[in-house]
Design a protein around this nucleic acid. Structure first.
Lengths: 184, 184
DNA sequence: GCCCCAAACCTAACACCTATAGGTTTCCAC
DNA sequence: GTGGAAACCTATAGGTGTTAGGTTTGGGGC
């Protein structure tokens, strides 16, 4: 029984790849075991249980996403930063649908999720919001972007105008709202 | 073997109740069979497979929700109608979390989902939007409300200001945006 | 190289799930 | 009472997650 040289990180990474390739629901301990050529029970040396595996995928995805957002928003402010933040999330969801679903299904606090909140606050900094309005804005922005991505994933009815245009209008709307909330 | 007097509607209704009581993931054909005191295989006389069962729950929930929204928005216009539409959905999600999850997980077109779109359009009628903007607004409203409910379900960080206040501010923002898009 | 030990693997078993095929029972119409 | 369809059951197959205990591997110390 040669060793497959597994580790928690290797198992979680493979689960994330599998989620994107085969869909979130296809990620099972059994499927991963087949992928690595070991018995299902062997994976318990590396992950406590299925929930811990999925939490690992969530954490990996959150780290990747916050990196993506940091890159996209660096050097931008105001509306440009807002658009970059939103686009980064939409792009990530499209390119990594399985990882995105893992993010939606889990909610563990992590350094990366705190980082995401900080990045959001940084983007909103350009609007000079009061402390309270900053929280309102963070919630509204998160809700709108996440809700959009979820609805879009289900496929907006295929009608004009194109969802890309609607998306642009939605972001413009958010920009306008945050400006109107500005305390300066 | 006395008959349990099952029918597709009875099975789907029990699944919906079970989803709200025990959680969406707890709804299995096995669990339903135990609930009715029959063997699991017997349920296949009434539902084609698990997916069809969950589609039934989705359809039932969509019908209930659109009824709720119709009642809540009747006789209201403008901002009041908008708030009523949004509140009806948020209330429904809170009172019937399992049903709500069934709605998020499925996307089958049905008479009730078409009705929901019509109700949304009726609510937005008060804003006198162009045809294109009506679609943009429908998408933005759906995304914001659904995204909010999803994030709230995961539990906004427990901090001031309260999520209820943020919710009110979010609806105000939507109202303002739709007014600004008005073609009259 | 040998020995020891911990970790990584396997086997066996169990409980649970979905779904099919074929058999049995119930109920209703005639 | 009879016939037939539908509702039920049994048996089975294939799949999932998990635990307990056994076996093998690899690395460190001597």
């Amino acid at each position: 029984m040669a060793r497959a040289n597994l580790s928690p990180a290797v198992v979680v990474a493979a689960a994330a790849e599998m989620a994107d390739r085969d869909g979130f629901e296809a990620v099972t301990l059994s499927a991963l075991a087949r992928h690595f050529g070991v018995q299902t029970a062997s994976l318990y040396s590396h992950v406590r249980d299925r929930a811990a595996l999925l939490a690992g995928v969530h954490e990996l995805a959150m780290a990747e996403l916050s990196d993506r957002i940091a890159m996209a928003t660096a050097g931008r402010s105001g509306r440009d930063a807002l658009v970059a933040l939103a686009e980064a999330q939409r792009d990530y969801a499209r390119q990594s649908p399985g990882r995105w679903t893992a993010l939606q299904r889990g909610s563990a606090p992590s350094p990366a999720s705190a980082r995401l909140v900080s990045l959001t606050w940084a983007v909103l900094r350009g609007y000079h919001l009061s402390d309270d309005d900053l929280v309102h804005a963070t919630r509204l922005l998160g809700a709108t972007v996440n809700g959009w991505i979820a609805l879009e994933g289900n496929g907006f009815a295929h009608r004009d105008p194109s969802p890309d245009v609607s998306w642009g209008r939605a972001l413009d709307a958010l920009d306008t709202v945050f400006h109107s909330w500005s305390s300066t």
